[in-house]
Simulated assay, not measured.
Amino acid sequence: MDGSARMWISEIPSLDPDAREVILDLDRTSADPAERMACVLLNRGHEGEAGVFYLLPEDLSARYERTGNRLSVSLLARLDVLAEDLAARPAALRVHLGLLPRDPLHDGRAVLVRRETVTDFVPAERDGFQQPVVLIDHNAEHGDGPVALTELVTLFERQEAGIVVVAAPKAPPA
């Protein structure tokens, strides 16, 4: 299993033990306002099989980038969609909306989360999309330090974490 503290390339046995996925950990209680904003957008998911939710690229999308032996994944959100979903949230979170870094390829989008790891893994491509990114969201109740992937999968199996699949278009969605 390759991975930084919060990004892995691995299998999720309860979903498809034969498929390698790019997995990001999202903590709903993170000190990072942008990570909490990403978690707000997860409410836009549409339920699929086995309790997995899927997001439309217009709501939240992912982008892969490779630099040498490093693979990075960014989670991107349209600013208008994010502003709409944050309207009912505390002002302390909304104030950070204007501080988010803009997506260099699409001015109407912001970069919410960016993670990277050293790997030779190349996401598969099909019909203008790269392999989707799997997000496992949870509340951090584990104390100090990052959560291990095995713990995240266990939380999902106990229905204490959610899995959301995010599309990774080759070109930025409109």
Rank of each mutant, 00 (worst) to 15 (best):
M1K: 13
G3F: 00
G3K: 00
G3V: 03
M7K: 05
M7H: 02
W8T: 01
I9K: 10
S10P: 03
P13I: 03
D16Q: 08
D16C: 12
P17G: 06
P17Y: 10
D18I: 11
A19D: 08
R20C: 12
V22C: 08
L24S: 10
D25K: 14
D25Q: 15
D25C: 06
D25P: 06
D27A: 01
D27V: 04
R28H: 05
R28F: 07
R28S: 08
R28C: 08
P33K: 08
P33C: 05
E35Y: 00
R36Y: 02
M37T: 04
L41T: 07
L41S: 00
L42C: 07
G45A: 15
G48Y: 04
A50K: 15
A50G: 13
V52Y: 14
F53A: 12
F53W: 13
Y54P: 00
L55W: 11
E58H: 15
D59E: 13
L60P: 01
S61Y: 07
S61W: 11
A62C: 00
R63F: 00
Y64E: 08
R66E: 03
R66L: 07
G68Q: 11
L76N: 09
L76F: 06
A77W: 01
L79D: 06
D80Y: 01
V81F: 11
L82K: 01
E84N: 04
E84C: 11
D85H: 14
A87K: 07
A88N: 09
R89L: 05
R89G: 02
R89F: 12
P90C: 03
A91P: 06
R94W: 03
R94V: 03
V95T: 06
L97M: 09
L97E: 08
L100H: 03
L105R: 09
G108A: 11
G108F: 08
R109P: 02
L112Q: 02
V113F: 05
V118F: 09
D120V: 03
P123Q: 04
E125F: 15
G128N: 08
G128E: 05
G128Q: 12
F129E: 01
F129Y: 13
F129A: 13
F129P: 00
Q130R: 15
Q130C: 03
V133M: 00
V134E: 02
V134D: 05
L135C: 05
I136D: 07
D137N: 02
H138V: 15
H138Q: 01
A140F: 09
E141W: 10
H142R: 12
H142D: 13
H142W: 11
G143F: 12
G143K: 02
G145Q: 02
P146H: 03
P146N: 07
V147I: 13
A148H: 14
T150I: 05
T150G: 13
L152K: 07
V153F: 04
F156K: 13
E157N: 14
Q159S: 12
E160R: 15
V165E: 04
V166E: 00
A167S: 10
P169L: 03
A171N: 10
P172Q: 02
P173H: 12
P173F: 15
